[in-house]
């Protein structure tokens, strides 16, 4: 049986931990709201952008753009997007495991893999693998299109120079507050956007005036499209991170409370045992005096 004092100290410690986890839970909840709002704000932009892309690529189907060039895939670049901070349950672990799997699969196919790590956790995980080509730690906290642009343009440059024949992104998709899953998508080469059947039938294919030419607009739009994709993935990851942390901290707080309950029970039992022991002594002593 542990001593009374030990149990008391332990209870105090757990209580303090639960205070911290509760605070972190609330902070994460507040941040999640912000991240979700940003995702909402971004949606109209992304939708309009995709609509315009569809519109354009319908007219430029035949033309060749360097960013859309499909090559024999010998080298693949994986962009792994995680959060910067931990303490968010298995969120990052899931992404990193998915990334590991993808690396193994691609290398199994005889392809060379290089990594771009966005977020500190990805970098720390792959640090010793020697595959990292570029990493961007401490970037997830600032929501600036600028960051996404830097990353996207770097990937594009790497693709254009022929160092990577394909660029894939692995990130944590935000499905709901309770569910976040790692997902993968192809960033480069950019696939022509097919106009969905329903829309093509809509007959809204008005003749557009293009300024400059369709091809030149496409040249401008394609890099922007990459920015949009990367930015979107980063927003998803940040919302997922906060949601995951919220859940993790909620669980931690609950675990703390359970622990405190159990410890209190132990504490009371120990104290009662002590009192009973003392009483026995007194009674025993009194009996002996008779």
């Amino acid at each position: 049986m542990p001593s009374l004092k030990e149990v008391k100290t332990k209870i105090g410690g757990v209580k303090k931990t639960s205070q911290i986890t509760r605070a972190m839970n609330m902070v994460a909840a507040a941040k999640l709201r912000g991240a979700q709002a940003r995702m909402e704000d971004f949606r109209p932009y992304a939708e309009q952008f995709n609509a315009a892309m569809r519109n354009l690529s319908a007219g430029t189907g035949g033309a060749n753009f360097p960013l859309m060039e499909v090559r024999d895939v010998r080298t693949v670049e994986l962009m792994v997007i995680t959060s910067d901070r931990g303490l968010c349950g298995s969120f990052n672990t899931h992404i990193l495991r998915a990334a590991e799997k993808a690396v193994n699969r691609l290398e199994g196919e005889g392809k060379k893999v290089s990594l771009v790590c966005v977020g500190k956790k990805a970098r720390n995980h792959f640090r010793r693998s020697g595959k990292i080509r570029q990493s961007y730690p401490d970037i997830m906290g600032t929501f600036q299109m600028f960051n996404a642009r830097t990353i996207a343009q770097d990937a594009a440059a790497n693709f254009l120079s022929g160092d990577a024949d394909e660029v894939r992104v692995i990130y944590g998709r935000f499905h709901s507050v309770a569910v976040q899953r790692p997902e993968e998508f192809d960033l480069l080469p950019v696939k022509p956007v097919e106009s969905s059947a329903g829309e093509a039938g809509g007959g809204s294919q008005a003749v557009y005036i293009y300024e400059p030419s369709q091809e030149e607009i496409m040249e401008v739009l394609l890099p922007m499209y990459l920015n949009v994709m990367v930015y979107h993935a980063m927003l998803e990851v940040s919302a997922s991170e906060h949601a995951a942390r919220m859940t993790a901290m909620d669980n931690a707080t609950r675990a703390c409370n359970d622990m405190i309950e159990n410890l209190t029970l132990v504490y009371n039992k120990t104290r009662q045992a002590g009192i009973t022991g003392e009483l026995m002594d007194i009674v025993g002593g009194a009996e002996a005096l008779k």
Binding site: V207, Y210, P212, I217
Partner: peptide
């Protein structure tokens, strides 16, 4: 792209940088 341009109501469909 080619300079400042104006758009009035009922403009023809246009896409410009």
């Amino acid at each position: 792209y080619a300079g400042v341009f104006g758009i009035l109501a009922n403009h023809a469909p246009l896409l410009s940088t």
